[in-house]
């Protein structure tokens, strides 16, 4: 008898994830992201040409040999689009994940412990939030050079304070909930309360933040490339391609539109997950 109850306690229904998957928006968002990631990973092998090698004259219109035409240096646009997502494909998710994880950790710790930890950490976040991210990026990249790890760090630094604010806002009312008071009253250690009582109950805003910040990371990383402070030529990168081929927009629009389309699809994927998750959560919470 006791074992059966115990087993049943352990295998609690993972209904939350199923409910999420049942949402059309979340499903399409996941499908889109998986498809994009697959394309980015397989893309370089599918590319008909070397993305860095000129195959024709600059800004050549689409033809049988180069389906999307050529870019400002006469390189094949299709090959560059297929190869150009590698950086974004790992940098964007990593930055989004790191900002959400660090942001949530800071938020929950400060919200739970209050006192001087709260004061110091939240005030420094406020400073970060107030400091224009673009200035910080320009400064750091000028000094240290455009290394991918540095870029990820900068994105995290830009996005994390916002995540922390939102999650902190969601966590504060929980501290007055009776189940948290109860946990305190029976002497549960702080870290356990944070992980067991607080974290599960901010999972909905966390998921929304993750989707949202993924889209933002894509946007920020692409704009860094666009202004020349991100991935450096001659590497193929969507953001970089937009800036390289901007002058040829009138003669060879595909060189600009194709990478933009890729960036947009990637962003929409994250956005759909965030939006769908938010709706599902609102529904279930209303029911509870």
């Amino acid at each position: 008898m006791e074992m059966t109850l115990h087993q049943r306690v352990r295998q609690r229904p993972a209904s939350g994830w199923w409910r999420l998957w049942a949402s059309t928006q979340v499903r399409w968002g996941v499908i889109l992201l998986v498809a994009m990631t697959a394309l980015v990973v397989v893309g370089p092998f599918l590319a008909p040409y070397d993305p860095a090698a000129p195959v024709g004259k600059p800004y050549d219109a689409p033809s049988a040999s180069a389906w999307l035409g050529t870019d400002n240096l006469g390189r094949d646009v299709l090959s560059r689009v297929l190869s150009g997502g590698v950086y974004l494909a790992w940098m964007a998710p990593v930055s989004a994940l790191l900002s959400v994880v660090i942001g949530a950790a800071v938020a929950l710790v400060t919200a739970y412990y209050r006192g001087w930890t709260d004061l110091v950490l939240m005030r420094s976040l406020d400073v970060l939030l107030a400091f224009p991210g673009i200035l910080l990026t320009l400064l750091c990249v000028s000094v240290f050079g455009p290394q991918p790890v540095l870029l990820v760090g900068l994105v995290v630094l830009t996005l994390m304070p916002g995540v922390a604010r939102v999650i902190r806002g969601a966590a504060l009312p929980l501290l007055d909930r009776e189940y948290v008071l109860w946990a305190k009253a029976v002497g549960t250690p702080g870290p356990v309360i944070i992980l067991r009582e607080l974290l599960p109950n901010v999972s909905s805003p966390l998921l929304v933040e993750l989707g949202l910040r993924l889209s933002w990371s894509v946007g920020i990383l692409s704009s860094m490339s666009f202004i020349g402070y991100g991935i450096q030529p001659p590497a193929a990168d969507w953001g970089l391609m937009v800036s390289e081929n901007g002058t040829g927009l009138g003669t060879q629009p595909f060189a600009v539109l194709a990478p933009i389309l890729m960036i947009v699809l990637y962003t929409i994927g994250g956005g759909l997950i965030a939006e769908g998750a938010a709706r599902v959560m609102a529904r279930t919470e209303g029911k509870a």
């Binding site: 609690r12 189940y179 946990a183 599960p200």
Partner: peptide, 15 residues
């Protein structure tokens, strides 16, 4: 509000 809504009641008691 006295029980954690994200935990089964068995898990709450186990805690």
């Amino acid at each position: 509000a006295s029980l954690n809504p994200r935990r089964t009641i068995g898990a709450s008691l186990a805690a």
